[in-house]
Design a protein around this nucleic acid. Sequence first.
DNA 1: TATTGTTATACTCTATAACTATA
DNA 2: TATAGTTATAGAGTATAACAATA
Lengths: 136, 136
Amino acid sequence: MRDQLPRYPGYSLRRAANATAAQLAARLGEIGLRQVEASLLLLIADNPDVTASALGRQLDIQRANMVPVLKRLEDNGWITRTPIDGKSQGLTLTAEGLAVKKQAGAIIEKFERELLDRVPAEHRDHLLPALDALWR
Amino acid sequence: MRDQLPRYPGYSLRRAANATAAQLAARLGEIGLRQVEASLLLLIADNPDVTASALGRQLDIQRANMVPVLKRLEDNGWITRTPIDGKSQGLTLTAEGLAVKKQAGAIIEKFERELLDRVPAEHRDHLLPALDALWR
DNA sequence: TATTGTTATACTCTATAACTATA
DNA sequence: TATAGTTATAGAGTATAACAATA
């Protein structure tokens, strides 16, 4: 079929993102994690007592949509909430949460290494700077 | 906030794809189109009498999920279906569909040009080949 | 047997509005 | 006034199973 769409970088960007996201989702799925949950565990590990709102801003996820995601992390015993003041609560990993975070981190590190390996060497160092220009 | 995620090309790939997709969606929304509809109009224009199944394979969209999308294109009078054999039907743009396709094509061309312009010159030519390696 | 088009369904992701309580 | 957390809800996008008709 005649298809000019792959010549568009924006189109290929989306296809590449979808393809790689599906691969990572499959790997994280093996330990019962979704991508957003893995991202949250990594962020919370590096930022003890972070608030749900701050995490949402960092990941571009609306406050309202954080609620069910964090509830699942809490129900699994991976995070705890401690009051900061009357309206904010700090999120911190439990020991179990830290163990899962380490697993997730290892999966992600391996995935990202393999992803970069698939990029031809002459283009490899250009990928991240080019992507950065499109969203940061 | 401490955030190591942007150092991962796979993460940045997804963030960049989300950010740029949102921008294109906004522009296509001004003429009442979603991205998948624009892609379909472009593909059908280049492949008269293409089948729904073939389009789905090309865009990685399941047959079942093509039904409501194509129904909307048909309800708007942008495509017509003509029987090929007893079980297949060819899709072709109407004159109205072609007019909308041209508008969509112009929006996409402009969007893609501006997207590439945002990538620093030294990285620009590497973006598409790097992305291609991740999904094609 | 494989393919096409279709229906039904469910799950995820995302966006918006609104509310309470607190800073 | 602005922010944090929450509830409810609606719209997309996506995945699976199943079916009839046809190749």
